[in-house]
Structures are given as structure tokens and as C-alpha cells.
């Protein structure tokens, strides 16, 4: 990990026009930066603009105000150094697993032998080597999500934007996938911004956790996770300090209080 900033948001504000023509502020004045090799989680209530931030970082949508930077360069559109992964695996049913992994590199025009080499290596490291010629419908949800991870990594991005990547898989598979992700990120030294609703996932996978407020989303807290073994979330789970971090995040998110208690707290 070095001090080079790989991903940065400077005063990013995003406004949408909703169905009735009213303007809606999704995120407001967000500033955040992720250094090289760092894994940062972003948590916050539903609808606070996390996915919106991810879309801005990947260059798919332009912010209303402010700007995002990748490797110090202003994001003006999709960028070869950034790749994203969503809750949906987005595998193409008519492509084999190998062809799905090659989807991104194929679009980028990398020659076929190199494409295949990369895809096969990735499938092997993710224990999917023997499924290269299968079709997505023949794989389980967890396996498909791993294929999506392989597709994301195949383009060799420096920054990964992950939007609740494991929230659609079962709890046990999720733990396995989390470890695979953690190891891959560590091994390749990639920088990642991970959006999640799973506080334990945020704490066990990242170096830092950023907490967003209800809409209009702002970053209201930043918690450095001072635990060893970022590449082994299963080991981290055992650590008693993890619970302290999780409770602190719950507190910041105002989870566990009824609306009445919140109102009373606000008056006090």
C-alpha cells in the first residue's frame, strides 16, 4: 500500500429529477479518497446514494457538481482502469463461462490468445477451471458470482468498484466468496471501494469504513479498521474487536433504535 490516491471524489453532488418533476438530491458534497491497495467500505441506509457514487466513479453518470478522479485523472467517462461488479452477476446466457470472463477484454480489443490466457488463469485461481465450457445456467449462484469477479479482474483494473457483490448469495457461500475476494485483492494489490449493507462484511474486508447519512447522502463518519489479516476475513471474524466495530457502525447508522427513541434522542 502506498500513499498514492487511486480513487477520489471531490465535492460530488448528484441531483435527480424524480417522476413528478421535483429535483431530488441523492448525494451531497461527498469527498472521499481511497489510496493505492486500500479496501474501503461504504455503508449507509438504503437510498442514500451509494450506487449513485459508484456509477459516478465508473464514469457511467456525470455528477451534477464536483468531480471524481481515478489515478489523479478526472473521470469523464468509462475508464479502462476501473471495473465494477454488482449484486447481479450479469453473465450473458449465450456465452460459455470462459467467454463470459473474456467479455471485457474482448471489448477492449485484447488479442484472443492473451484473452484466453488471462481468463483461464483467473478461472483456475477461483477454482472454476473445469467449468470454462459450461453455460451460466449450469452454475450455482455463488459460482456465477465468482465468474463475475473473474470477468471484473480480467480487464486488470487498478480500482474495483463493488456494489453489494455478495448480497444475493447464501450466507455460507458469501463467507467463502468474501475470503476469495480478500485474498485476490491482497495478492494483486488492487484498490477497492466496496458498497455493502453487511456491517460484518464491511469490518472484516476493509481497511476503512465510511458511513453515509440518510438522503441526501453525506459521509458522516470514517472508521479505520485497525485489525490484522485483511486477507482473511474468516480469521478476522474470530477477533472480539470486530464486534466493537460493528456496534459502533450500528450506532452511527442509528440501527436498533425505534423511530420514537430516535425522536426522543433528538429532543434530548
Amino acid at each position: 500500500m502506498s500513499d498514492v490516491v487511486r480513487l477520489e471524489y471531490r465535492n460530488v453532488t448528484m441531483r435527480f429529477v424524480d417522476g413528478t418533476g421535483n429535483s431530488l438530491v441523492a448525494v451531497q458534497q461527498v469527498c472521499l479518497s481511497v489510496r493505492d491497495g486500500e479496501v474501503v467500505s461504504l455503508i449507509g441506509p438504503s437510498g442514500c446514494g451509494k450506487s449513485t457514487l459508484l456509477n459516478i466513479g465508473s464514469g457511467l453518470t456525470a455528477p451534477s457538481e464536483g468531480e471524481a478522479f481515478i489515478d489523479g485523472e478526472r473521470v469523464e467517462g468509462p475508464n479502462a482502469h476501473v471495473a465494477f461488479m454488482l449484486q447481479k452477476d450479469l453473465l450473458l446466457p449465450w456465452r460459455t463461462i470462459l467467454q463470459n470472463v473474456m467479455f471485457g477484454v474482448e471489448i477492449q480489443g485484447i488479442p484472443l490468445p492473451e484473452r484466453e490466457r488471462r481468463a483461464k488463469t483467473l478461472l483456475d485461481t477461483l477454482n472454476l477451471g473445469e467449468f470454462g465450457n459450461h453455460y451460466p445456467h449450469q452454475l450455482s449462484g455463488g459460482m456465477r458470482q465468482r465468474v463475475a469477479l473473474a470477468r471484473t479482474l480480467a480487464v486488470d483494473p487498478t480500482v474495483l468498484l463493488l456494489d453489494e457483490p455478495f448480497s444475493a448469495v447464501d450466507a455460507q457461500t458469501r463467507i467463502v466468496l468474501q475470503r476469495e475476494l480478500a485474498q485476490t485483492l491482497k495478492r494483486s494489490g488492487k484498490t477497492a471501494l466496496l458498497i455493502t449493507h453487511d456491517l460484518l462484511e464491511a469490518v472484516t474486508l476493509s481497511d476503512r469504513v465510511l458511513v453515509m447519512s440518510r438522503r441526501p447522502g453525506r459521509i458522516i463518519d470514517e472508521i479505520a479498521v485497525d485489525l490484522p489479516q485483511r486477507d482473511d476475513p474468516i480469521a478476522r471474524r474470530q477477533d472480539p474487536r470486530v464486534n466493537q466495530y460493528v456496534s459502533r457502525l450500528m450506532e452511527r447508522l442509528d440501527i436498533g433504535h425505534t423511530p420514537a427513541e430516535r425522536a426522543a434522542g433528538a429532543q434530548a
Binding site: N55, S58, L60, A80, F84, K88, F103, G104, E106, I107
Partner: peptide, 25 residues
């Protein structure tokens, strides 16, 4: 699925690539 189109766009796909690799199949 617009997310599929966005996925292709994130890899800098051209309009023609989006058609031939996603919409057409």
C-alpha cells in the same frame, strides 16, 4: 437489462459492440 448495457459501457464498448454482443444475441 440496462445494467448489462452499463457493464459493456464500463468496458468502453462502442454502440456497434453493444448491439452485436448484447442486444442482438
Amino acid at each position: 437489462d440496462p445494467d448489462l448495457i452499463n457493464l459493456a459501457r464500463s468496458f468502453k464498448a462502442t454502440r456497434a459492440q453493444i448491439f452485436w454482443k448484447i442486444e442482438f444475441p
